[in-house]
Amino acid sequence: MSARKLRLGPLPSTASVKLTFACPASLKADLDRYAALYSQTYDEVVDSATLIPHMLEAFMAGDRGFKKETTAKAMPPKQP
């Protein structure tokens, strides 16, 4: 394994739902390069389609505005 660190760590096992989306060719190329680097870093062969859900999950987990909104809606209203 390489000493390199990626923001996306080893992938957990999870159930999944199929989702199809379109992206620019340049983004697909970047995703493929990231998948190659990930595979090299963690000695685990993965393709970009496998990484995308985990990347989106990491992005949303780091989005403070999304977390704040989600937390606010999950909390019960204050009682007077």
Rank of each mutant, 00 (worst) to 15 (best):
residue 15 A to E: 07
residue 62 G to H: 01
residue 57 E to H: 11
residue 70 T to L: 11
residue 1 M to C: 04
residue 11 L to R: 04
residue 50 T to K: 05
residue 30 D to Q: 15
residue 54 H to R: 09
residue 59 F to K: 11
residue 35 A to G: 06
residue 75 M to A: 12
residue 52 I to W: 02
residue 20 T to W: 00
residue 17 V to L: 13
residue 54 H to S: 05
residue 6 L to C: 07
residue 6 L to Q: 12
residue 5 K to M: 08
residue 63 D to K: 08
residue 80 P to C: 05
residue 20 T to F: 01
residue 13 S to V: 00
residue 28 K to Y: 01
residue 8 L to V: 08
residue 34 Y to S: 09
residue 11 L to N: 04
residue 61 A to V: 13
residue 79 Q to P: 00
residue 61 A to P: 01
residue 44 E to D: 12
residue 67 K to I: 15
residue 49 A to F: 06
residue 8 L to K: 02
residue 10 P to M: 07
residue 53 P to T: 02
residue 75 M to Q: 10
residue 37 L to C: 08
residue 46 V to F: 01
residue 66 F to M: 12
residue 25 A to E: 15
residue 42 Y to R: 03
residue 66 F to K: 12
residue 75 M to N: 04
residue 17 V to S: 13
residue 6 L to V: 04
residue 76 P to K: 02
residue 72 A to E: 12
residue 39 S to C: 04
residue 62 G to E: 13
residue 76 P to M: 02
residue 15 A to Y: 00
residue 69 E to P: 00
residue 73 K to Q: 14
residue 79 Q to L: 10
residue 58 A to M: 09
residue 25 A to Q: 10
residue 77 P to Y: 02
residue 2 S to W: 01
residue 14 T to L: 10
residue 57 E to P: 00
residue 50 T to F: 00
residue 4 R to C: 12
residue 51 L to N: 04
residue 32 D to T: 09
residue 37 L to Q: 10
residue 79 Q to C: 03
residue 34 Y to L: 06
residue 54 H to L: 07
residue 42 Y to S: 03
residue 29 A to S: 11
residue 36 A to W: 03
residue 26 S to N: 08
residue 67 K to Y: 12
residue 3 A to G: 11
residue 25 A to G: 05
residue 50 T to C: 03
residue 13 S to F: 01
residue 30 D to T: 01
residue 18 K to H: 11
residue 35 A to H: 07
residue 71 T to L: 12
residue 72 A to K: 15
residue 57 E to Y: 00
residue 21 F to L: 13
residue 38 Y to S: 03
residue 54 H to Q: 07
residue 74 A to F: 06
residue 73 K to N: 07
residue 77 P to F: 03
residue 73 K to L: 14
residue 27 L to P: 03
residue 40 Q to C: 10
